[in-house]
Design a protein around this nucleic acid. Structure first.
Lengths: 342, 342
DNA sequence: CTGAAAGCGCTAACAT
DNA sequence: ATGTTAGCGCTTTCAG
C-alpha cells in the first residue's frame, strides 16, 4: 500500500479533495464546518497521512527550501567554518520553517554559475559561503548572473565588491585596528603581519585596519613585516626565519590573519624551540571552536561564524517573502578573547 | 518574464512538448530525428532553459535528494564529526548525481520519528548520523518506524542493535584490542580507560576489546581503572586525581575513548603541572582533523569519518536504486597514527 | 459553506 | 519516428 493522499481521505470522509485540503491547511477559516474538519483531521491522523511536499511545492510554486553553495576545498579550518555557519543557518531555518539543500560541491573548477542556477530550480533561494580563496571579480560575476536569472541569494563572508547584494561579513578593518591598539598598549612597537595572499579581500581589509591603527599610535608597518604565505607552510617558515634572524630587529608581536596561519606559527615556534609569549607575542584571528584547542590559549579575535550564517539565512528569507526588501550589506562586529599569547 | 518551460520551447520549435522532453533528456534514442534534436537543443540553450526539477520529480516519483538527519549538536567535537561525514556523503552524492537535504536539527527533544517521516516526503531516502548520545533502544525504535513507513535509510556510527539496517560504524572492539596491544608492547602494565558513560555502545565495545586484549597479554583492567566522566570535565578531573594520588599504583598509560575526553586529559595534565608522555602515556581515539591540532601530537586511533559518510550514502543509494539489495552492516577499520604521547 | 475543474511543469504509456 | 493523452498530488479559483 502506497502513501495515503488527499483523495484517499476525501473518499473515506465522503467529501471532496478540495475540502480536505482546506480543512487540513487553513487552521481557521469558515470554509469548512467545524464538525467536518474534526472528522477529516481524525481520518488523516488515522491513516497517518503526510502531504506530498513535492506536489504541494509544485502547486504553490515554492519549496521552502534554501540551497547552500559551498566551494569546498580547504582543509579542516574551512570545514569547521562551514560547520559553524551551517549551525547558524539551521537555527534560522528552523524558526522560519525552511529546510536546507546542501549542493554537492564540485571539485572541478568548471562549476559555473549556470550549474548553480540549474540546481537552484529546487529552491527558493541560495546562500553562498565565500571562502578566503574567492576572488572579488568571480563573485561579482556570479552576482550578475544570479540577478539575470532572478534568483534570490545571500552571501556569507568576504564579499566587498560594489554590486549590491545581500551579504554578511565581519569587519576586518576594525579587527586590524583593534589588533594594533591591543598590541600597542602592551608596548609592542615592532609588529608583523602574517597573512595569506595580497589579493584576498581579507588581507586587504586587515591591512587597511592595521595601517590605520599604526598611524594612530605613531607606529609603522614596513613592507618587510608583511608576510604573505599563500597558505604554504614552508613559505611561512621562510618568512618567519627572515623576521627572526636578527635578534635586534625581530618583531616582538605577530598578528596572524587566520587560524591556519596561527597553526603555522605555533608549529614554527615549536620547531625553532621558542616559547610564546616569552620570545614573541602573537595575536590570532579565526574560528573560536578550533582555536580554543590550541595551547597556549591564543589571544585572538573571533569571527562570529554562527551569527553570520543565521543572519545570511534571515536576510535571504526576508527577501524571498517580502520582495520589496532592499539589499543589505552587513558587517558583524568581531569578538575578542584574551588568552595567554599576547 | 518567468522561467521558460518545455511548452515555450515546443512552440518555438514547432513540435510537441513531449518531443522536446525526449530530445532533451534521452541523449541517445531514435525517438526523435537528429536534426530536430539539434534544433531543439539550440533553442533550449538560447532561452537558457532549465527544467523545473519539482515537476520532474513529481512525474518521475523521485527527487534524487537524500535527507540527512542530525540529532542535536554537541560542541565542536561533534560539529567537526558532522562536517567530515558530510564531506564524505557529498563525495558519493556528487558521483551518483544526488543532492543532500540537511534537516534542521530540532533542539526540542520532542522531535519524533514521525516528524522525520513527514519531512522525508521530499527525499528518496534518509541518512542518520547517530551521535555518542544515541541510545540503542531509541535507535531501534526509529528503525522500526522507518520500516513501517517504508522509508529507505542508512545510519552512520554507533548502531549495534539486532534489527537489520544499513549502517556503517567503526570497529571499536578492534580499537580497544589494538590499544592494549600497543601499550603492552611498550611495557605498560597499569593501563586505565577514560571513557564516557557505561551505557553507550562505544564504551561497551571499546571495553570489550580492551578486556580481550588485556587477557591476551596477561593483564587486567580492574573496575577502578575504568573512569566514566559523562563528559563533565570536573568529573574527569576527580577520576584522574583518584588515579594519580598514589604514586606507586598510578596508571602508566591512559586510553581515552574520544577526542573530548582527550582534551579533558590534556587540560588535566596542564592543570596539575605534569607532562605527557614523561609522567604518563596517553592513547587517543577520535577525529583526525581535530586531534591533529593538539600538542604534543597525540598517538591515536582515528575514526574514518569521511569514509563512513561516503559509504553510508553509497549503501543508501544502492538500496534505493536496486530495492532487492539486502541490508548491510559494515564496520570500517580504524586508522592508527603514532604521535608523541605514547 | 461545499465541490468541480483547471492548472503547476514534466514524464511515459499509448496511439498514429 | 512523432504526436497525443493521461496522470503525478496538491492548491486555488469559481460556480453552486
Amino acid at each position: 500500500m502506497s502513501a495515503p493522499k488527499l483523495a484517499d481521505i476525501a473518499k473515506r470522509a465522503g467529501v471532496s479533495i478540495a475540502a480536505v485540503s482546506i480543512a487540513l491547511n487553513n487552521r481557521d477559516t469558515k470554509r469548512v464546518s467545524a464538525a467536518k474538519r474534526e472528522e477529516i483531521q481524525r481520518i488523516a491522523a488515522e491513516m497517518s497521512y503526510a502531504p506530498n511536499e513535492l506536489a504541494k511545492a509544485l502547486a504553490e510554486r515554492r519549496t521552502r527550501l534554501l540551497g547552500l553553495m559551498v566551494p569546498l576545498r580547504d582543509p579542516i579550518f574551512f570545514n569547521h567554518f562551514v560547520a559553524q555557519a551551517l549551525s547558524g543557518i539551521q537555527s534560522t531555518l528552523m524558526r522560519r520553517g525552511y529546510n536546507l539543500l546542501v549542493y554537492s560541491p564540485s571539485g572541478r573548477p568548471g562549476r559555473t554559475t549556470r550549474d548553480q542556477i540549474l540546481e537552484s530550480k529546487f529552491t527558493d533561494g541560495l546562500i553562498f559561503i565565500n571562502t578566503r580563496s574567492c576572488l572579488p571579480r568571480d563573485i561579482a560575476q556570479t552576482i550578475q548572473e544570479l540577478d539575470a536569472a532572478q534568483i534570490k541569494f545571500s552571501m556569507i563572508n568576504s564579499y566587498y565588491g560594489r554590486t549590491p547584494a545581500n551579504y554578511v561579513g565581519v569587519d576586518d578593518a576594525a579587527i586590524g585596528e583593534a589588533a594594533v591598539r591591543y598590541l600597542a598598549e602592551q608596548k609592542h612597537r615592532r609588529i608583523a603581519f602574517l597573512s595569506s595572499s595580497e589579493k584576498l579581500p581579507t588581507h586587504v581589509h586587515l591591512l587597511q585596519g592595521l595601517r590605520h591603527g599604526m598611524a594612530a599610535h605613531g607606529l609603522e608597518l614596513p613592507a618587510d613585516r608583511i608576510g604573505c604565505t599563500d597558505y604554504v607552510e614552508s613559505q611561512a617558515f621562510a618568512i618567519l626565519d627572515r623576521w627572526f634572524e636578527n635578534k635586534r630587529q625581530r618583531p616582538t608581536a605577530i598578528f596572524c590573519a587566520d587560524d591556519q596561519l596561527l597553526m603555522f606559527f605555533y608549529d614554527y615556534i615549536e620547531a625553532r624551540g621558542m616559547r610564546i609569549p616569552d620570545d614573541v607575542a602573537v595575536l590570532g584571528r579565526g574560528n573560536a571552536g578550533l582555536m580554543s584547542l590550541l595551547r597556549p590559549r591564543p589571544t585572538a579575535f573571533y569571527i562570529p561564524t554562527f551569527e553570520m550564517g543565521a543572519l545570511a539565512a534571515e536576510m535571504l528569507i526576508d527577501s524571498i517573502e517580502k520582495p520589496t526588501e532592499t539589499r543589505q550589506r552587513i558587517l558583524l562586529p568581531f569578538k575578542f578573547e584574551p588568552g595567554q599569547t599576547a
